[in-house]
């Protein structure tokens, strides 16, 4: 009798808990499936680009990487001028944006009055979200003409007789070119660098800084000897992240790079980058080989940025572990 009384509810409860367990397993698998989707996207990108680039990979082999030729008529392609342009413009951008970005971060964390600290910080974060095509058309209509008329002729004249600089600033002032593209990229990544560096600086424990101030250090000494060593990994990670963005950036560069598949040592010469070449030529690529070569430079771009971003993330993780956030 006891058994019968207790048996009925247990049976139904078993049924309910079995149902719950089934839903539980289903839900868990569903989320796991979605998470693996992220890996699938990565694999999909690599595999599909590889197959898309097959023609060009088979024909040109590894020499594609260091061949400086881009001739759709003769069907001969090499990625050197695009890789050169990509690396050069990004390097220029970093050269300009890192000091200014860190300057902004120092200003925000150490110097600025409290009233403007938050508004400026928010403004910078908002600017980091502005689509890159905005920077692109600004560069095309405002910056390039300005540089062409007001800045480049002067620089060309000034350095005409200086040995190395004269080849760096040679040629007619086109307005568009490597230098202008680097400048626009710098403006685009500036908010990123400033925002991340500020976050990292803010993560430095104030006891450390207070101790240094207590010993009589000046602001600069606290920054140089305490804040920067502590934040180095994080700042480097942030810079690498910005570099990854700069390398892969398309729209900010395409308008102002000049679209010329010739390598030039002059910063004022028109050139091209991987992303600009793809954006400009992809829909005009008439032959399979042309298309395949464009996809292969896309694959190269993905490879470069992937490595840079991986290093960036690794460094930022290490920083997070250290600050315990």
């Amino acid at each position: 009798m006891d058994d019968a009384a207790a048996g009925a509810p247990t049976a139904s409860m078993n049924k309910v808990s079995r149902r719950f367990a089934r839903i539980d397993a289903f839900f868990r698998n569903l989320t796991g499936f979605a998470a693996f989707g992220v890996l699938a996207v990565l694999a999909g990108v690599i595999v599909s680009l590889y197959f898309g680039a097959q023609l060009s990979i088979d024909k040109f082999g590894l020499a594609f990487l260091w061949t400086d030729v881009w001739n759709p008529v003769k069907q001969e392609f090499g990625a050197l001028s695009e890789i050169y342009g990509t690396l050069l413009t990004s390097a220029l951008a970093m050269l300009l944006a890192i000091p200014v970005g860190i300057g902004i971060a120092i200003f925000l964390t150490e110097l600025s009055p409290l009233i403007i600290k938050r508004p400026i910080g928010i403004a910078i974060e908002l600017l980091a979200g502005i689509p890159s095509i905005i920077y692109g058309i600004w560069g095309l209509f405002v910056l390039a003409p300005f540089l062409q008329v007001n800045v480049q002729p002067w620089i060309i004249d000034t350095f005409a007789d200086v040995p190395i600089l004269s080849s760096l600033f040679a040629g007619p002032p086109f307005g568009v070119g490597y230098g202008t593209a680097g400048f626009i990229l710098a403006m685009m990544v500036l908010p990123f660098i400033a925002a991340i560096t500020r976050d990292v600086f803010d993560g430095v424990p104030s006891v450390l800084k207070e101790a240094a101030y207590g010993l009589g250090c000046t602001r600069w000494e606290v920054l140089w000897h305490v804040v920067l060593p502590y934040a180095r990994v994080g700042v480097t990670g942030g810079i690498m992240l910005a570099l990854g963005r700069a390398l892969g950036e398309t729209m900010a560069v395409t308008f102002v790079i000049g679209n010329n598949h010739r390598i030039s040592s002059s910063l004022f010469a028109p050139g091209t980058t991987i992303s600009a070449a793809i954006a400009n030529e992809f829909t005009e690529a008439t032959s399979d080989m042309y298309l395949s070569a464009l996809i292969e430079i896309g694959l190269i771009l993905f490879g470069i940025t992937f490595i840079v971003l991986l290093i960036a993330r690794y460094m930022l993780y290490r920083m997070e572990l250290r600050t315990g956030r």
Binding site: V38, V41, L42, G244, G248, T250, S275, I295, G298, F302
Partner: peptide, 13 residues
Amino acid sequence: VLLSAPSVVVGLF
């Protein structure tokens, strides 16, 4: 990493 991967590559994909 995909968060800041070049969007032009996604287009190619």
